[in-house]
Design a binder for these strands. Structure first.
Length: 429
RNA sequence: GUGGCUGUAGCUCAGUUUGGUAGAGCACUGGAUUGUGGCUCCGGUGGUCGUGGGUUCGAGUCCCAUCAGUCACCCCA
């Protein structure tokens, strides 16, 4: 085995048993989206680099140093999508989907060239939800209720909902100036990172985890004080709605999203047990992006959820998914018997499509075949030896209780299976 | 991208201090029971000790580089 090839950094295979958690999460999402009448979109994984530059913002970390960009054969600049909103907006404009309010969702891999860490990968998976044409706090309430229900359905607790508003672009720009002036007065007290961000994205400084900065930051001007009455009224209405629906939340005046396009309401669910990558779901309103990307002015709001982080939380909660167990493991004594077992199995599948049967392959003694049956957690072993074959019966042995092994004739088999297997729920192991 | 810690069988780990030809448990597999699983007992397969170089008579062990994981920062889902 000459130098073996391994998966590239930060990109992971998802295998059993974890795959069952993924399927569980994906099913929960699909069901919920269906119930709230959101429509699924399948979007390309590769887009023009220009799309992300124009939507996420030229001076963000994502665009500056985290994108997987390359030249297509004809020289076009392409990029593996680092997030989904841009693609979704592009598609909505391109296909004329913005004539009326629309609710969309999508799911799939995203790519960012960051240093991998638990809960942060170079290929990771997101659920994205985007709603177009609804400007009010009502749709914000709906999204929060929807996600809250998802947590409930997945059995996830200890998620804290944080909310803030960034106001409209004018208010935000105004605040930005005030903040920059304040921070410049304290320039020497800032750390190197924050000094750099002062030029590029000063709002992010508010998010700094450096304890030495906390004093300066708590005394910094507060965004909410520079927000106009209309924007404040928007936030107030959302707060009233949330309280009416018994949703707990905290207002976090320092909550600033990393992407340039956000306006007004932003929110995020944080889990403190996940280490530093605690944000599990985050989103906000982006009322100007559609126009920015060449569409007619259309309000929009969206959110993104990190599937890896959800799965990590489920694992932390010791959430075990029982893969449905195998109903029948078919054991045979000879090639002739095995062929007959395949024929019988197909007849069973014709009549009972949902049944799970595996015909033993690979030979071996009865003993080793029974061992396999047991390790595959089958409920029943079905035995077809030469003796049974001539008498046209199969032996059936329950592997999960002490019931005696019985014989059932080929003719009665379907009937027997329907009454004994499909009518009884599998016992949990 | 910066810094700390870790890397030995499919998995969990011992062995590293004081350099001397690679170990355990689980898993897999065969047998005890020649057509019957789970429990028990006995045997077997499986490792270029992450990779590459260096020091040495000799390196899993010491040194350097590199790759990967992990934690924190940066950033973000």
């Amino acid at each position: 085995m000459a130098n073996k090839i391994q998966a590239i950094r930060g990109m992971h295979d998802i295998l059993p048993p974890q795959i069952y958690l993924w399927q569980h999460v994906e099913t929960a999402i699909r069901t919920l989206m269906h119930c709230y009448d959101y429509q699924e979109l399948r979007l390309p994984i590769v887009e023009t680099t220009e799309l992300f530059k124009r939507s996420i913002g030229e001076v963000t970390d994502i665009v500056e140093k985290e994108m997987y960009s390359f030249s297509d054969r004809n020289g076009d600049g392409l990029t593996l999508r680092p997030e989904g909103t841009a693609s979704c907006v592009r598609a909505a404009i391109e296909h004329g989907l913005l004539d009326t309010p629309r609710r969309f969702w999508y799911q799939g891999p995203m790519f960012r060239h960051e240093r991998p860490q638990r809960g942060r990968y170079r290929q990771f998976h997101q659920l994205g939800i985007e709603v177009f044409g609804l400007p009010g706090p009502d749709i914000e309430l709906e999204l929060i209720l929807l996600i809250t229900r998802l947590w409930h359905n997945l059995g996830l607790k200890q998620l804290e909902l944080q909310i803030n508003t960034l106001g409209n672009p004018d208010e935000r720009a105004n605040y930005r100036n005030v903040l920059v002036t304040y921070l410049q007065q304290n320039y020497t007290k800032l750390d190197v990172d924050s000094q750099r961000r002062l030029q590029q994205n000063p709002l992010r400084i508010l998010d700094s985890k450096n304890p030495e900065l906390q004093d300066i930051l708590t005394k910094a001007p507060i965004l909410l004080e520079y927000i106009g009455p209309k924007s404040l009224e928007h936030l107030e209405q959302l707060k009233i709605n949330l309280s009416a629906c018994n949703i707990n939340y905290t207002i976090n005046p320092r909550l600033v999203r990393g992407l340039d396009y956000y306006t007004h309401t932003v929110f995020e669910w944080v889990n403190n047990n996940l280490g530093t990558q605690g944000t599990v779901c985050a989103g906000g309103r982006y009322d100007n992006l559609v126009e920015q990307l060449g569409g007619r002015p259309t309000t929009a709001i969206g959110l993104a959820m990190g599937i890896e982080r959800i799965v990590a939380m489920l694992i932390d909660h010791n959430h075990v998914i029982n893969a449905n167990q195998l109903d029948i493991y078919f054991i045979t004594a000879s090639n002739t018997a095995q062929t007959q077992a395949f024929i019988i199995s197909e007849q069973i599948r014709d009549k009972i499509p949902q049944i799970r049967i595996q015909v033993h392959c690979g030979g071996g003694s009865f003993k080793s075949q029974f061992k396999k049956a047991d390790r595959n957690q089958a409920r029943y072993a079905m035995i077809l030896g030469d003796d049974e074959l001539t008498r046209k019966v199969v032996g059936i042995k329950s592997l999960r209780d002490q019931n005696q092994q019985i014989e059932v004739s080929f003719l009665d088999l379907i009937n027997w299976l329907q009454t004994h297997i499909m009518s009884q729920p599998p016992s949990n192991l």
